[in-house]
Design a protein around this nucleic acid. Structure first.
Lengths: 174, 174
DNA sequence: CGAGTGATTGACTGCGTTCAACCGACGTGG
DNA sequence: CCACGTCGGTTGAACGCAGTCAATCACTCG
């Protein structure tokens, strides 16, 4: 665990190597994935600006090396380098865009929600034979879309039949 | 209409007076409200930073006076006033926090989703006799939570019975 | 080969949606 | 002053889709 929901933020985190999942868990043990971050990404920065507590928890999914910078150092950095400041504006703007795209899917079908997730995710995926290999499990797609594994599986199956995605040996391509 | 989903952003918008709804509409005509903004608020700024198109449309819900600053002027402003730049960082951080709080509710019950909306919304509401008067219609709560009006009404009714909210003459208090 | 993890399937259930009315408050115009 | 139109709120009945539960399959790795 890297930090917990509702905790006060003391550090800026940036991944050197490894993968980190930022997520919520409710009373019934059901999980929702807010985001997955890997090499080079930072995560959990908003509270460093807004004085909110963390809206979610963070956990390393793999062995990982993560740089931590305390909040004072982080604020000094922002002050001294306006271009870093601007960089966070751009980063946050992109995040808000992604969140808005996912949020609006709440009123759409499982297929539409999965497609929105694949679309958002594909630029992070590696390309193989003109298609993007989706590096996530069905469970992870379910956690990210708010659906159930079974629903994801059944929906993907229909989508394969309709040539909207491809599956080769359980591996998903888009 | 102030701007449309998928359009390129040319202006920074700030409300002098009036109320603006930023929303999506799907093929079946169902609407999802991304946010409601009023006096003093700005809206639709992320694409000015991230070069994305608008993720949603904006419409004035009331007569309104809105300042518009073209993107070149906006960028000059940011460059010349680092504290404005920082102001947007804080604003975006708060927005991300709110979006994360709403997003995680996707795995929760209607009651929980409505409560999350009320909680987020209450600091914008006016206080009356120790309670916050929620200035939104049931339809607007439905649009903001991804539920249906009927579900909102029935859930609120149960919540009244359990003393989680109050209703006086159709008006909702929290 | 066996254990473990992720994927898959089928049967059943229930909750939120859908549909179709009706209610109630308010404002306007004759 | 009342009739009427409008808009938001409310209710009941029926439906259907995603969720739930339980079992099995498939692949990987030690």
């Amino acid at each position: 665990m890297i930090f917990w929901e509702d905790e006060v933020a003391h550090f800026y985190h940036q991944i050197q190597s490894g993968t980190v999942r930022v997520y919520n868990i409710n009373d019934e043990g059901r999980e929702f994935t807010q985001g997955i971050f890997s090499d080079g990404n930072s995560f959990g920065e908003p509270p460093l600006f807004s004085q909110d507590t963390y809206a979610a928890s963070a956990i390393a999914m793999t062995d990982a090396v993560i740089y931590k910078l305390n909040i004072e150092g982080f604020q000094r950095l922002l002050k001294e380098y306006p271009e870093v400041q601007h960089g966070f504006n751009v980063l946050f703007a992109k995040r808000l865009y992604d969140k808005a795209c996912m949020a609006r899917e709440i009123i759409n079908s499982p297929e539409s929600r999965i497609l929105a997730f694949l679309k958002k995710t594909k630029h992070a995926a590696t390309k193989e034979e003109g298609l993007f290999r989706i590096p996530y499990t069905r469970q992870e797609i379910a956690n990210s879309t708010g659906l159930r594994v079974e629903t994801v599986i059944r929906t993907l199956k229909r989508m394969v039949k309709e040539n909207k995605v491809e599956v080769k040996g359980h591996k998903l391509f888009y």
